[in-house]
Design a binder for these strands. Structure first.
Length: 422
RNA sequence: GGAGGGGUCGCAUAGUUGGUCUAGUGCGCGCGACUCGAAAUCGCGUAACCCGCAAGGGUUCGAGGGUUCGAAUCCCUCCCCCUCCGCCA
């Protein structure tokens, strides 16, 4: 949620921000509601002040007449407070609903653009892999090498599910170890968070707005939702807490499955494990102060790049434009990795500075020099394991149908090549 | 799942026959005094949020309702924690 003060101080700037993101929201609606809220708040407070005076005086009053007159006045105030409070709560609800429509204010360096075509290419690592044979896609490779079984997963769970088997599992655990090794050096605290969280926590993270609930699995018997990324579980961890400024930045590296309904993507990426309902992910999450969040964002990006460079997979780094940046984010970088079968780069990592957009609703603050201010929160993928597996299989495949394992992972996998079982 | 006990301003606690509770005390923390310095001791100060230039006012005692002129205190619903029993990786 954005800061109402920001809207009051710079309405034209906020309006321009919305416009750059392809949204038209009239700031006057929220401003009018805010003014109404302040006015009604004053009325309620004035009534309460008088009510408190009466309550404080009655015990000391000996005259029965005076007592009765005070009690009667108190009764009247009680009724008025009830009415005004109902109005206040209605106005506050409307204001909150209105403010939730607003996306985060983008950083100044974010390019203005309509959609993904406006994203800014920052750098490229390596070149698209060239083959002197006809390369297979990851599903053919995975099937031939007995790493991925989607037919049986369909039988058991339906479309967009997969069994990962054999060396694919060893690769997964190697990727996890590699990501942990690199992040632990920098003081990240590893976390295995709950995979099911309350709707209250998910709502506070801002994932239930704008049709977001369509993307989420809901366990209705217990009113819990399955996380779509560990960010949703780690973010609320410090809900309603004040972090000591000396402890910043607080860095977590989470590991969890990610559950996604993929409700709006029926025709897309139907083959293989590019887009499935469940995949595992190592995710970084930082809490820091407002003046240090951009620096932290660059750090998260640098870790992501180092990880991908370590795997020697061809990739490039994008800064997303205004129209392609998600609502909670003030700036997002994506890393896209070359996928030979699709002859294009596909997103494998993403990092966002959500500034105080999520922490405002989470009420997560930092204490700096005795003063409390909202924390800034940032998230970034270390490895989205499914898609990285796809990239490794397809880019590192050999003419004989085997796959060479990236050097940095070999110690954990225990071999340097995946070959067909005989 | 059954039975019982609890959630109070960093931590620990007092407060449950409703009204000086605008929540007391200890610890911790900050400032000061004493000291060459420190410990000890003493004094003062120490929750958050909202409105307000300020003075000040308002809200918050797990959450939400209710009773009352007035609720930490009484009633209802829910959440969480602890102990015992049952079940269980």
């Amino acid at each position: 949620m954005i800061d109402i003060k920001r809207l009051l101080e710079e309405p034209e700037r906020v309006a321009q921000n919305n416009k750059n993101r392809g949204k038209s929201i009239d700031p006057q609606v929220a401003i009018a509601l805010h003014e109404k809220r302040v006015a009604v708040t004053h009325e309620v407070q004035a009534l309460r002040t008088r009510g408190n005076e009466i309550a404080a005086r009655i015990p000391g009053v000996t005259s029965q007449d005076e007592r009765k007159s005070l009690v009667d006045e108190g009764k009247g105030i009680k009724e008025q407070v009830k009415e005004k409070e109902a109005e206040l709560s209605r106005v506050e609800g409307e204001l909150a609903t209105e403010l939730k429509r607003y996306p985060n204010i983008l950083r100044d360096d974010v390019p203005v653009g309509k959609d993904e075509t406006g994203n800014e290419l920052l750098r490229t690592f390596g070149e698209p892999t060239k083959f002197d044979f006809e390369p297979k896609d990851h599903l053919d490779l995975g099937t031939d090498l007995d790493l991925i079984d989607m037919d049986r997963a369909a039988k058991v769970s339906g479309a967009r599910f997969a069994y990962l088997k054999g060396d694919a599992v060893l690769l997964e655990f190697a990727l996890i170890q590699y990501a942990l090794q690199e992040t632990l050096k920098l003081g990240f605290v590893p976390v295995v968070p709950p995979h099911m969280i309350s709707t209250a926590a998910m709502g506070a993270m801002g994932y239930l707005e704008h049709g977001g609930e369509e993307e989420i699995y809901h366990l209705k018997n217990d009113d819990l939702v399955l996380i779509g990324t560990s960010e949703q579980s780690i973010g609320p961890m410090l809900m309603d807490e004040i972090i000591d400024g000396d402890k910043l930045p607080l860095r977590y590296v989470g590991f969890s499955p990610c559950y996604r309904r993929e409700a709006g993507s029926y025709g897309r990426d139907t083959r293989g494990v590019i887009r499935v309902h469940q995949f595992d992910k190592v995710e970084m999450f930082s809490f820091t102060s407002a003046d240090r969040s951009d620096e932290e964002h660059e750090l998260l990006l640098s870790i992501q790049e180092r990880l991908m460079q370590g795997l020697k997979l061809p990739h490039h780094v994008l800064k997303l434009c205004s129209g392609d940046t998600g609502n909670p984010s003030a700036r997002t970088y994506d890393i896209e990795t070359w996928i030979p079968s699709q002859k294009t780069y596909r997103e494998t990592s993403s990092t966002s500075n959500t500034t105080d957009f999520q922490t405002r609703r989470l009420n997560t603050r930092v204490k700096l020099e005795g003063k409390n201010e909202l924390a800034h929160a940032l998230n970034g993928t270390a490895f989205a394991i499914g898609r990285v597996l796809v990239a490794i299989l397809e880019n590192d495949q050999q003419a004989d149908g085997s796959v060479v394992i990236p050097e940095v992972l070999r110690a954990w996998v225990g071999k340097d090549r995946i070959v067909k079982r005989t």
